[in-house]
Structures are given as C-alpha cells and as structure tokens.
C-alpha cells in the first residue's frame, strides 16, 4: 500500500519536474536577451558570438533548444558558469555543503527549541510562560531575517564580543572530505577547527531558525491544546496517571503530526531565508553564490542553482508526505 502511494507521488512529480525545468529554461535562455553575447563576454567579435550561438544551439528554434537543454540536464550537465568559468555542477558541489550545514543546524535548532517551547506554552496555557511564548511567536514570524541578523551581529559580535562574526571559520578549514566543517573536523580530529566552525554557526543558524522556530512553537502549542482536550487524554488523567506522563505519552505524540507538516513546509522557507542569512554573515554558501550569479547575469549558474534548490525542496516535501503517511494511521493512501 505504502509503496503504491510513494510510486504514485513519484509519478505525479514528473510533470512538475518538467515544468520546473521549463521555468529555469525560460529564465536562463530567453529573459536576459542575447545569451550568446553574455557567454562570449566583452569584446567578442561577431564571429565568436556566431560560433557560440551555434555551439550552444542558440540559433535553433526554442523547442529544440529546450530539448537540448533537457538532454544536458538529464546527463547531469548544468553548463558552465560565465562568472567563475567553471562547470556549474562543480560550483554547486563546492558551495552546497556550507548551505546544507547552515540550514540543517537551523532546522535542528528550531525543532529542538520549538517543540519544548510549544509544549510548555500549552501546559501553562494562559499563564506567563504561555504569554511570553505567544508574543515570541508573533514577533518571530514577523521578523525580517536580514534585520535580525544585523541585530545579533551588532550585539553579540561588536558590542559583547562573545561570538564570532562573519565567515564560516577563522583559520584554515579542516581537510576537505564532505565540505561540512563540523563533520570533517570531527573525522580528522581537528578540534581547533571544530570549535571554531561550531561557534561561527551559532549566530547565522539562530538567525535563520528564528521564524521557523516561532512557527513550530505555535503549531506545537495549538496541536498540544487540541490533543490535551481529547477524550483519551482526559481518560488518562482520570486514571490518575502522572501529569508529565500524560503530556508526553498522549499529548505530544499526537501533537507532533501537524508539527511535522510545518517542519516540511518550513524547509523551503529556510532555503529562502538562507539568502539573507548568508549575505549578512558572509557565509560562502549556495544562495550567496546564486545572488552573485544573478547580479552578474550569470544565467547558467542561476538556472543550475534554482533547479537544484527546487529539487531539494520537492524531495523534502515528498519525504514529509511519506513520513506523514507512516506516522498518521488515519491517512489512507
């Protein structure tokens, strides 16, 4: 049954992915005007531009160009960046680990802080902790990430000086294995780099986590309230079970299901939020790279990164749906 559900979901992805490719194709091939001119760069002679036009198939009708493009992408060829003169795939591999490390840490932070906060808020309903956490969630979802980042940078780096500021690491990065500094420094036993990288992660990951944290708190609170009001919880209470046990065993378990959805949906938000976070903290990640590509009209790179981000986003949402199906017995596939 589950396998069937997954297969159906995967099948439904095919038209979506084709559409995603079409959009990235439109963005990178049509909108910026003469792509051949862009690829050729300054001072290219008309002959060179003509040669590039042929080489890249830009002289062919659009649907043929799209077919060529599809073929390239399916072979894993994302083209060559105009700005860095390297294959876009290589650039993405170089910049992705930084973004992955940042968004994953932020997500962990949001989940690990958000769920307890939500539970506390629900248990102490309409008392001080609840009021505080509700005010926090209102501010959290309204906060411009870039401004929060600046505030934290100002406070903890400039004024108090207790946390490191811009950048991923101060000294030499650990030997490259995965590109994830925490992981790599653990593997190589480079404790200096581990501490350094971990501290550098604190401000950016908290900045990025803030809005999602607020959302998770809010969702956990309301689903906890709902769960705690259910009959079986009341029964459990009536049976004289310890309050904390009731909350955890019966309330939280059921409250987690809607929270899970929020987590999945929030991943896209984290990828978007990473843009401002990486800019503020000089974080050498993929979204930082793509902003640079966008401002220098490096459309092969823009297309590649947008495509990769969309695929990540789709995959995460698919995983959430599947988990959801696994966790919630009420779902019928």
């Amino acid at each position: 049954m589950l396998a069937f559900f997954i297969a159906r979901r995967l099948l439904l992805l095919v038209p979506t992915l084709l559409g995603v490719l079409l959009i990235t194709f439109l963005i990178s091939h049509i909108v910026p005007g003469d792509a051949a001119q862009l690829i050729a760069g300054p001072r290219a002679t008309p002959e060179i531009i003509q040669r590039i036009r042929q080489e890249y198939g830009l002289d062919k009708p659009l649907h043929i160009q799209f077919a060529i493009y599809l073929g390239q992408v399916l072979r894993g060829d994302l083209g060559k960046s105009i700005r860095t003169r390297r294959p876009v795939g290589a650039d993405i591999r170089a910049f992705f680990p930084a973004t992955f490390e940042l968004t994953t840490t932020a997500m962990l932070l949001a989940v690990l802080l958000g769920i307890p906060l939500g539970v506390i808020s629900a248990v102490y309903r309409d008392r001080l902790p609840d009021h505080l956490s509700r005010v926090f969630s209102v501010i959290g979802v309204s906060m411009p990430i870039f401004w929060l980042g600046l505030l934290l940078l100002f406070l903890f780096y400039i004024r108090l000086g207790i946390l490191p500021g811009p950048g991923r690491i101060s000294g030499d990065p650990p030997a490259h294995i995965t590109g994830l500094y925490l992981f790599d420094s653990l593997l190589t036993g480079n404790w200096r780099a581990l501490g350094d990288a971990a501290l550098h992660l604190v401000l950016p990951s908290f900045t990025l986590a803030f809005a999602v944290l607020a959302r998770i708190t809010r969702m956990t609170r309301s689903s906890m309230l709902e769960a705690l009001a259910q009959d079986y919880v009341r029964t459990a209470r009536a049976k004289g079970l310890h309050e904390r046990w009731v909350v955890v065993r019966h309330g939280l378990r059921n409250a987690l299901i809607p929270t899970l959805t929020v987590i999945g949906l929030s991943y896209g938000e984290l990828l978007g939020g990473a843009v401002a976070t990486e800019l503020i903290f000089a974080w050498p990640g993929m979204t930082h790279y793509v902003v640079g590509s966008m401002t220098s009209l490096d459309f092969p790179a823009v297309m590649g990164v947008t495509l990769v981000i969309a695929i990540i986003y789709i995959t995460v949402n698919l995983l959430v749906d599947i988990t959801y199906a696994l966790v919630d017995p009420r779902i019928r596939y």
């Binding site: 979506t16 995603v20 990235t24 963005i27 990178s28 909108v31 990828l271 978007g272 843009v275």
Partner: peptide
Amino acid sequence: AFPALILAMAIAAA
C-alpha cells in the same frame, strides 16, 4: 515547487 524567494529573485534578476 520552488521556494518562493528563490524564484522571485531569479525572475527579478532576469
């Protein structure tokens, strides 16, 4: 299927 901000950036840049 795109994170909203990323797609908006790409379109605005183009």
